[in-house]
Amino acid sequence: MTADAGSPTGAARRPPAGTAKGKRSLGSRLAEGVSGGLVRVFLIVVGLFWLVPTIGLLLSSLRTPRDLAASGWWEVFTQPSQLTFDAYEELLKNGDITSSLVNTVLITVPATVLVVVIGSLAGYAFAWMEFPGRDWWFLGVVGLLVVPVQVALIPIAELFGEIGLFGSFLGVILFHVGFGLPFAVFLLRNFFAEIPRELLEAARLDGAGELRLFARVVMPLGGPAIASLGIFQFLWVWNDMLVALIFSDSGSQPITVALQTQVRQFGNNIDVLAPGAFISMVIPLAVFFAFQRQFVSGVMAGAVK
């Protein structure tokens, strides 16, 4: 798009020496207008490409199984009367789905809080305490950033089996915390290290001990980084399927696993899958739209993960 629209612009734009910017020829401005128009059309088409799949899911979730089997979701544009909340009503009567939604919350919230708290403690220690080999230990944690979760699946499954954590909420939560910590420590240590020394010294002179310093000065100042980390970890755990697939059982499975079991019979279960998937997306999307800035800065910092 840039290529074919660009060359006429460039040719027309090559000005005689000294031509001011405002005096460009009509032709060059025309060419620019055309290329601007092409860019707009291209971006609109791409935007539709990105929106249509999600809209398809939403509209599919608002139709009856009979309509779904008979025709495509786009038929609702000509027959809006097909729209119905029946599938959602059915879904909320489905005990497996509702309890798995609760399970998702029961897994996600503790896994997020624990990572933030434990990561902050360690991040602060790495940033402001003195102990032998501090920076080497920290580099060791950084090295763990890219360890694939796959490495731990079999060993931890056996470990949890032996100590009776297999299938429990705690097991799933602990696994998420373990693999969330390298990023948490990395992000928070770097952020805490930027806190001006004077602030900490002033608090120290007021007689604050290490724990008080941490709770009253470091944690509040670390707000932006903690928010980024919290959102990142929240979405990561909420959206996880693989870890829960292995470590949860039918009593502790989150929504992703509950829906996954229905995928095998995709065509027959679409009336459960479409609204279920949409419900599972609502919270992450709300978090995403509410905290875009923190999310983006988390993504930036996490580019190494």
């Binding site: 959206n239 995709f266 992450p284």
Partner: peptide, 20 residues
């Protein structure tokens, strides 16, 4: 619009694309 799919689970994206 383009960034939004990053916020959803791969499971949801998978179901979306099974439909597509």
């Amino acid at each position: 619009v383009v960034f939004m799919p990053m916020a959803i689970s791969m499971l949801a994206a998978g179901i979306i694309f099974r439909l597509v």
